[in-house]
Amino acid sequence: MWPLDPSRKEVLRFAISCRVLTLMLQVLTRFLGSSTPVVYWFPAYLLQDQEPLLRSAETVSWKLLVEDSPSGQKVPRNFILGLLYNWKTCSPVTRYILGYFLTYWLLGLLLHCNFLPWT
């Protein structure tokens, strides 16, 4: 095989180390996201503690709201969709949490479909 000059060796070493680092980060992120519920418990705790829309929803059944809603008015069954529909009235903590998860989801969708490293 032909000899590699020092600059090619450095480029090859850098490329291999970047790939290994990317692979390890993807695997670690997947393991933590799928096996550690604390990652999801803490934002859920903050949402329950900080969001007045969720505290008022505890006393009213959302299922009744959906069945009794007038035609043309969209009332969701899902609490997260309810927060997204009422984005402007949400607290700043709720906006940050929803924004983080929506951004993570959107970036993952765009980057993973283009074969870029994303978990």
Rank of each mutant, 00 (worst) to 15 (best):
T89Y: 07
W105C: 04
W87P: 00
K9A: 09
C113I: 08
W2T: 08
S61R: 07
K74H: 15
Y45Q: 06
S34H: 11
I97E: 01
T29C: 14
S61L: 10
D68I: 06
A15T: 01
N78Q: 10
T59L: 12
Y104L: 14
S7L: 14
L25R: 11
P3L: 11
Q26D: 15
A44N: 04
P76N: 03
L32M: 13
P92G: 02
F79C: 08
K88C: 04
F115W: 09
L64F: 05
L4P: 00
L32T: 00
G108Q: 05
L111N: 05
S91I: 04
D68Y: 09
D5R: 09
P3E: 10
F101R: 03
V20Q: 12
L102W: 06
L46N: 01
K9C: 10
C113N: 08
L107E: 05
S61F: 05
M24A: 15
Y96K: 12
P70I: 06
K9V: 06
L53K: 08
T59G: 02
L4M: 13
L53C: 03
L110E: 02
L102G: 02
R30T: 09
T22C: 11
R8P: 03
R55S: 04
F14V: 02
R55M: 13
S61W: 08
C113R: 11
P52D: 03
V38F: 13
L21F: 14
V66H: 04
L25F: 09
D49C: 10
V20I: 12
